[in-house]
């Protein structure tokens, strides 16, 4: 099983005991997100609503690629890949 790094944005670090980045073992991008939630369960409600629908302004990157589709969630991982959670660049002040 590949081991990848998951990077957490500032606002969500309150739900990871301050962890900015941590390793998970997972075969796909989706499985890596599941593993991140398993490690820090309070992340779940901030990545998706209570019915499991992804929050539209939460972006997930697999290395440099934005994950937008089920196919990209199912993309296989390799050792050393990076999963980055970022908020979308939008909103006012």
């Amino acid at each position: 099983m590949p081991t990848v790094q998951v990077w957490i944005p500032g606002l969500l670090r309150d739900f990871t005991s301050g962890e900015v980045e941590f390793p998970v073992s997972a075969a796909t991008v989706g499985a890596a997100l599941d593993a991140a939630v398993a490690r820090h369960p309070l992340l779940r409600s901030h990545l998706a609503d209570e019915h499991g629908q992804p929050r539209p302004n939460v972006n997930v990157f697999h290395n440099e690629e934005l994950v937008r589709s089920e196919r990209e969630l199912a993309a296989p991982l390799t050792d050393g890949d990076r999963i980055t959670i970022l908020q979308s660049v939008s909103g006012g002040c």
């Binding site: 609503d49 209570e50 019915h51 629908q53």
Partner: peptide, 20 residues
Amino acid sequence: SWVPLGSGPGFSGEEGRPTV
């Protein structure tokens, strides 16, 4: 210091039910 009260309120059921 602050502690989250669980995951926050959430409506039961599937997609199509209200959301918080």
